[in-house]
Design a protein around this nucleic acid. Sequence first.
RNA 1: GCGGGUGUAGUCUAGUGGUAGGACCCGAGCCCCCCAAGCUCGUGACCCGGGUUCGAAUCCCGGCACCCGCACCA
Length: 568
Amino acid sequence: MSGDVMEVALRRGFINPSYEIYGGVSGFYDYAPLGAALKKNLEDIWRRYFVIEEGFFEISSPTISPEEVFVASGHVSNFVDPLVSCEKCGSAFRADHLISSAVDVKTDGLSFEELSRLIREHNLRCPDCGGELGEVYSYNLMFKTYIGPGKKKVGYLRPETAQGIFILFPRLYSFYRKKLPFGVAQIGKAYRNEISPRQGLIRLREFTQAEVEIFIDPRDKRHPNFERYAGERLRLLPQDREEEVELTAREAVEQGIVKHEFLCYYLVHTQRFLLELGIPYERLRFRQHLREEMAHYAADCWDAEVRTERFGWIEVVGIADRTDYDLKAHERHSKVELRAFRQFEKPEKRRRLVLEPKMAKLGPEFKRLAKKIATTLRELPESEVRRFAERGELELSIAEERVLITGEHAEVKEVEEVITGEKFVPHVVEPSFGIDRIFYCVLESAYYQREGRNVLRLSPELAPVKAAVFPLLTREELVKVAREVFEEVKRAGILAIFDASDSIGRRYARVDEIGVPFAVTIDFDTLEDETVTIRERDSAQQVRVPKSEVAGILRDLIEGRRRFAELG
RNA sequence: GCGGGUGUAGUCUAGUGGUAGGACCCGAGCCCCCCAAGCUCGUGACCCGGGUUCGAAUCCCGGCACCCGCACCA
């Protein structure tokens, strides 16, 4: 089995538990020097896939939101778990689940006091040990705070970055010149006050999400670029099956296993991204959420999962069809229209009956109510207008008052209108990445041992340090030249390190352990013929190249324009 | 949040009621013509806070962190 990659990650400065000198706080990790660099490289690759290649843009919104945002999104109510603990054995249970499974009572919307009372009334006991149950208490996974002095303005740290995009919809829609589909990306911190964070980077209280919200027309969930991925293979675990099936993207959609092309396109796109990070195909699968684990907003959701040595299958990406849930919710709460416009192929001409209010009569008679009455009359459905035309009168309820409208207040007219299109609430497809988890998977996938030494097989793009420069021996003449080469490499924009201590073998071993892909060594031949060696990490092979070209060659190798094997 | 286990240098570990040794790592130097463990010297630790005691890293209590189970994980 593998050695302990986490031990390497801690010891060599990739990550460390936060607040160590004060005893630590679980659920928080620092990205140490190499980890911060690796994480940044990982995020840049993500940007290449989900921003540049897809033609989307990235935004950055605040991590603290006023509570309205999460009232609307459903997080304030859906994120509160009523828990009850056994006084004797300490097991905790969802109070509402406990009650509804033991007694035929609907628990929806009951207060905690009412839940506590129900437990007492029915003399419910601990299902584990039969012990006495305590009072029901709430546990909300959002961190709460107050905005400004005093406690009037409640705020929450965002539990996901997505809402920051949804609430910007009108601005973003016009930024993208009112055309669907469009996507908006965001990489940022999110916060969940987990009851019991475990497993290092896998369950954090503060973590990094990379999300894209793609707004699409619900009538057309095909993807314009689906063809380029149609033949790609995916390992899928559908909700109604025990075993994984391997299908092409096209087959998955045609068989109705993945609901539509748009979702499936992003399964493939996500897979390509994860493969590029060095996560092997054999350790990857897409698992469809079970109905009961589906989030309150989702119509369909697939998790990309990676099989790790340490933790087994872990979810690293969620790809969900969030439908119009979020936009509708914010529209309802904010009273701001969050809709797109769909133009008809041909404008529709329609004749219809409308009511034209006679303001000259309405005004004096109804005074303050007149304006509201007029608006209501104009917006009256055609069936109501028809009924008014037949009966000659109509009763309305305006601002809690009943008013009688007759022929002298309004006139029925037939109008011809041209309808060029209609408004609708877009659906949202959301690939959502847990960057910290992916970070862990990348480390674990990259890690192996060679002759008892640790090696990180990170791609040059991911590697936090791109190159090392060594004098073969600590002779002044070699060190001097090596320093010159080192300066030149840095001038070429390459993040490199210099090391002249210990034996050359030990120095190679040290840089292998942190995943440096290339090492340049200056030896006595360099003094003769102005050449240096470049050593590749994974093969430990060396080639000689002219000293004057080494920086350029390193850049080509790192940026993928040349391959090491083709150098010699 | 509950139960069990663990907590000695960067890492792995030895140890006794009288205040700590080792290995690797790391630093300086030597040696060294290409893949860790050559030589010399050196830095560096008993998770935190109380209590018992003349004295505690060692015993007791509380906290924190980590590991394993339970619960939780839109």
